[in-house]
Amino acid sequence: MAAKGNGSGDLARGMDLLWGTADRPSRGPKPSLSVDQITRTAVEIADAEGLPAVSMQRIAAAFGFTTMSLYRYVPGKAELIALMIDMAIGERPDLDGVPGGWRDRLAEWARRCLRTFTRRPWLLEVTNVHRVMGPNELGWMDAALAVLAAAGFTPVEQHDAFLLVVGHVRSVAHFTVGADRLRVADWSAAMGERLMRDADRFPAVVAAIQGGGYAKASDEPLEFGLRCLLDGLEKLLAERG
């Protein structure tokens, strides 16, 4: 039972569940729950209380079921998290209506991606590993790659550029969501006091702080990084003619 609770270990079964192609049982009582209901409840718990609060027992209790009864629908926690990710990310962004060229579309993709992470910080943790991706998550990737392909980047460049952009988004998100944001004021006060005592040892850091380098709005790091990345990508295209 312990192994069952951690996941079935069957990659094909997990993919079928995630992509909605799993066979439905032809015998036995009619299911009184659905995978969608279970996943939606898990996402609601994670949104309200964080990922550690999500458990098969907690979800079963929300429906008045036993924990073991949920395994008829979801083999275990690993498969549940995969389902949660795809539901929480949502459908692929429609970038066709974004005015401007490929730079504007890719920048808008990054902004929407950041909003998703800041709205659901627990996604940062569970998407930072190699795993099977669902149709919604792949849809987001496909939308970004389509923009890069239309701009004229090669397949290898599309992949590398995508990793650069999504890596920048994730980095910004890590410093602007959840508990990190709540600790910024305390961190700044403590570090500021310490640095003033040892200003001669860290002159560049002190100068940057005193010059306002660490007092920017939370959305500026995203835009600055995007501008640098997009300038570099545009230069690559220009050099190739």
Rank of each mutant, 00 (worst) to 15 (best):
I81W: 00
A190Y: 02
D23F: 01
E234D: 15
V172F: 09
R112D: 11
G76N: 01
L51T: 00
V74M: 08
S26T: 15
V129L: 10
I81Y: 10
R227E: 14
L95P: 09
E49G: 01
G139N: 03
D36E: 15
D86I: 10
M1S: 15
A107Q: 05
V147Y: 04
R131Y: 06
M1L: 09
A48C: 06
A53N: 06
E125A: 12
L237S: 11
M133V: 06
A151E: 05
I45Q: 01
G213F: 09
D94M: 04
T127G: 10
A161S: 15
R27L: 13
G178I: 03
E234L: 07
V132A: 14
L138W: 03
L237D: 11
E239G: 14
R201N: 12
R27D: 14
A189N: 07
P135C: 06
L95V: 07
L18Q: 08
R197M: 13
D16L: 03
H159D: 14
L51V: 02
E49D: 12
A149K: 13
R240H: 12
L70W: 02
G139V: 10
K235S: 14
E157D: 13
L236G: 15
V177I: 11
F117G: 00
V184D: 10
E137H: 12
E44Y: 01
L70Y: 04
R92I: 00
C113A: 14
L164I: 04
A217Y: 07
D23T: 01
F175R: 07
G90C: 10
A48N: 08
E125Y: 12
L145W: 04
A208C: 09
L148A: 11
M1I: 03
L230P: 08
M15E: 11
V74K: 07
T116D: 05
T41L: 08
W187N: 05
E137L: 13
T39E: 05
A144R: 03
K77N: 01
D10S: 05
I59D: 00
H159A: 15
P25K: 05
L164H: 08
G213H: 08
G100R: 10
E91W: 02
D86Y: 12
R105Y: 10
T41Y: 02
A46S: 04
R194I: 06
G152P: 07
A215S: 15
F153Y: 06
H159R: 15
A207C: 01
G14Y: 00
W187T: 07
A53E: 10
L229T: 10
E108F: 04
I89C: 11
I81G: 00
R103I: 08
G14P: 00
G97P: 09
H130S: 14
F224Q: 09
